[in-house]
């Protein structure tokens, strides 16, 4: 694609905005899961990563960062919590406590 055409078109599509929203996830130490830290605005991924480091990791305690465009996240809907999550709550056979083992047997 002609670079000049690209340039023209994209310039026309650059109205003033606060840039898209990104969600930030941080990992505090090796082996720990990444947890949601908050959001920020950035024009692209590299900037989102740098901003996330400045906003959420400048006091240390972070060894890894993920940034995700907020629009890329699909969330379950609270209105469907019942059918979505409840059926899992009463299936005790998925939990260790359901099963009895003879006393004194180790490692089970």
């Amino acid at each position: 694609m002609n670079q000049d055409v690209v340039a023209e078109q994209t310039e026309a599509l650059a109205p003033d905005s606060q840039w898209p929203l990104w969600e930030v996830f941080t990992q505090s130490e090796q082996g720990a899961p990444h947890e949601h830290a908050g959001s920020l605005h950035a024009a692209d991924a590299e900037q989102a990563l740098q901003n996330a480091r400045d906003v959420y990791a400048r006091r240390g305690g972070v060894i890894s960062l993920w940034v995700v465009p907020a629009s890329a996240i699909t969330a379950s809907s609270p209105g469907e919590n019942g059918p979505f999550f409840d059926p899992g709550a009463d299936k005790a056979y998925r939990h260790p406590q359901f099963y009895k083992v003879p006393r004194g047997v180790r490692g089970v």
């Binding site: 950035a42 740098q50 901003n51 400045d54 906003v55 400048r58």
Partner: peptide
Amino acid sequence: PILEEDIATSN
């Protein structure tokens, strides 16, 4: 020019 950049520049 934007809040995030204020923080970055301060850093």
